[in-house]
């Protein structure tokens, strides 16, 4: 882990809607790592992601992306791709896939400018990467759950970013589609030299594919390689926190380190 640090949190505390959602979080993400930010609902995962994007300002501590505060990134913003939660997007919007992907480059293209050849090329390349060229002219509402997710990723990839931030990317997928999605993401990560940061509550599934995890529960409970974090004694303490917060019977499935049990776990649509 001697690579350059791209995201750094130092004693970071962030409030969301007047409540402290993150407290005293310190860790750093190095270039080309694949991170899973894990934790139950309300653990501050999304808050952390929004802080990285500069949508929320710390109440204490600092956060730096490429060495600067996210609000002051300026043109460096174009090096960050963001894939929002599925539920934030209105898929009934009259928009075709290629139009949506092009919008990912909106700011980079410049105020009032139309798409140049370079922009069109980037859109095509992004669609190729998510294997959706054949769906370029389909309305976004007519895509399947997995395709919608990949289209949102293509929109982020259209910027050719160095960091890709994904917020609960599998929330709208069923269990088998979720596994397939992580396989694909893992594959993409190994092909493109990109830092991936992924927020999820799927502790079990995610930890198989990422090379580092951060377990959040308002505070940073543990972080490091999945094998270290999930196998050491701190595990008990961490799951202790999780058990306390997960109240819908999912816990036993997530605590078992073997992935074989995942198909039993209830999933949401």
């Amino acid at each position: 882990m001697s690579a350059e640090i791209v995201i750094e949190c130092l004693q970071l505390s962030v409030a969301y809607q007047d409540k402290l959602a993150l407290e005293d979080v310190t860790f750093s993400i190095h270039r080309n790592e694949f991170w899973g930010i894990l934790g139950p609902n309300g653990s501050g995962k999304t808050t952390l992601l929004k802080s990285m994007l500069g949508l929320l300002t710390p109440v204490q501590g600092t956060i730096r992306v490429f060495g600067v505060a996210p609000q002051k990134l300026g043109p460096l913003r174009d090096r960050i791709g963001y894939v929002p939660q599925h539920s934030q997007i209105d898929f009934n919007f009259p928009l075709q896939v290629h139009e949506m992907v092009l919008l990912g480059r909106c700011r980079k293209m410049g105020l009032g400018r139309r798409a140049s050849g370079e922009d069109i090329e980037a859109v095509e390349k992004a669609l190729e990467r998510v294997e959706m060229q054949h769906l370029a002219h389909r309305q976004i509402g007519r895509l399947s759950g997995g395709e919608r997710q990949r289209a949102l990723i293509a929109r982020a990839l259209a910027l050719e970013p160095e960091i890709l931030l994904l917020d609960e990317p599998t929330a709208a997928l069923d269990v088998s589609a979720t596994e397939g999605f992580y396989e694909w993401l893992h594959h993409m990560h190994s092909q493109l030299h990109m830092t991936l940061v992924l927020v999820s509550h799927d502790v079990g599934v995610v930890s198989q594919y990422v090379n580092a995890i951060a377990c959040l529960n308002k505070k940073l409970v543990a972080h490091g390689r999945p094998t270290d974090v999930l196998n050491q004694e701190s595990l008990e303490q961490m799951y202790g926190c999780d058990v306390m917060l997960f109240q819908h019977g999912k816990v036993p499935h997530m605590v078992v380190p073997s992935p074989a049990h995942h198909h039993e776990s209830p999933h949401q649509e």
Binding site: L55, G74, I80, Y82, R107
Partner: peptide, 12 residues
């Protein structure tokens, strides 16, 4: 119109 948060994130 489509995605206000994205517009903010990209720095518009």
């Amino acid at each position: 119109t489509f995605d206000l948060e994205m517009a903010q994130v990209t720095g518009l």
